[in-house]
């Protein structure tokens, strides 16, 4: 299978800050690939490198078979980008945003004059065709931003935190639209720190931290490889005796973060027992998810 995106031993620094240390990635055609990482891990720099907006100090970036940034313009002509902050043009209406953006791709005559209706329909914005951007909700803006990224019928879609700041409904609509794009054979690369997003959408995810890729696999395989399938979370008031859990779950992997106690176990039945034992506390039993992998691999310190 052909690689749509390939990074080989890429390094990139900005003045004192080493944003990417040594990054190698390969995204196959038709795949939805997630870049996960805490703030400052190097996700946005990776996106910039893929678009040829910045040149790597070391290593090789290849997108759609072309070396970047040397062929950045050809790559961008075949790529759709949904930026983190929609950056829609506030001086134009919904439909004008699509038309004006299409012209940036040199899509004169044929495409420019073509009916933007299918894109508006895709974005669920037919009824808002002539509305100003300021009249749109956050979800509508993001959908328009996504529709705009499709004006050039791109082979690759690049999304920088596509659902950050959206409410759950709006988020689900975006996911559904993105799955439709995958169904049409486009390749998607997205950055996110919503693990749920990566689990629902991505065929494979790369966990990036401190400018390095620390794990790449399918979400399920990552969970299976790094954390036990069952997690019990117990909220223990800080003053109370911390002795309690120890006696009950000797031998299991535990983690204490603030007032939360996490117990990881391969046995569902045990997890249920602890949950009952902890009935006077706020507690829950859930399946392990990418969050646990992510936090295990990148640590629990706050990143600002």
């Amino acid at each position: 299978m052909a690689a749509v995106v390939e990074l080989e031993a890429v390094g990139k620094s900005f003045e004192q800050f080493e944003a990417i240390k040594d990054l190698s990635l390969r995204v196959e055609a038709g795949e939805c690939f997630g870049l996960l990482g805490p703030n400052g891990a190097g996700k946005s720099t990776t996106v910039k490198l893929l678009l040829g907006l910045t040149a790597p100090d070391r290593g090789q970036v290849t997108v759609l078979g072309l070396p970047v940034p040397e062929h950045a313009l050809q790559v961008r002509a075949r790529t759709g980008v949904v930026p983190q902050h929609d950056a829609l043009d506030p001086d134009f209406t919904v439909v004008e945003n699509l038309e004006v953006y299409a012209r940036y791709f040199g899509l004169r005559a044929a495409v420019s004059r073509a009916d933007p209706t299918p894109l508006l329909e895709f974005a669920g914005l037919l009824h808002k065709r002539d509305a100003r951007i300021s009249e749109l909700s956050g979800g509508m803006r993001r959908r328009l931003s996504l529709a705009r990224a499709l004006v050039n019928d791109p082979e690759l879609l690049l999304l920088d935190e596509p659902t950050t700041g959206l409410d759950p409904q709006a988020r689900h609509v975006i996911w559904e639209r993105l799955r439709r794009q995958l169904g049409r054979g486009r390749t998607i690369v997205l950055t996110t720190h919503f693990l749920e997003e990566a689990e629902r959408l991505c065929d494979r995810v790369a966990i990036i931290d401190h400018g390095r890729c620390i794990a790449v696999d399918t979400p399920r395989a990552l969970i299976a490889a790094h954390v036990e399938p069952h997690v019990v979370e117990i909220s223990l008031p800080t003053r109370e005796s911390p002795q309690w859990p120890i006696e009950h779950c000797e031998g299991e992997r535990r983690e204490r973060v603030g007032d939360l106690l996490y117990i990881y176990t391969p046995h569902g039945a045990r997890a249920e027992r602890w949950l009952q034992a902890a009935s006077r506390y706020r507690a829950l039993h859930r399946a392990a998810n990418l969050d646990d992998v992510f936090l295990k691999l990148t640590g629990r310190d706050l990143r600002d």
Partner: peptide
């Protein structure tokens, strides 16, 4: 951020 959007195009 109009310029940034422009730079995402060719």
């Amino acid at each position: 951020k109009t310029w940034e959007t422009l730079l995402n195009a060719p």
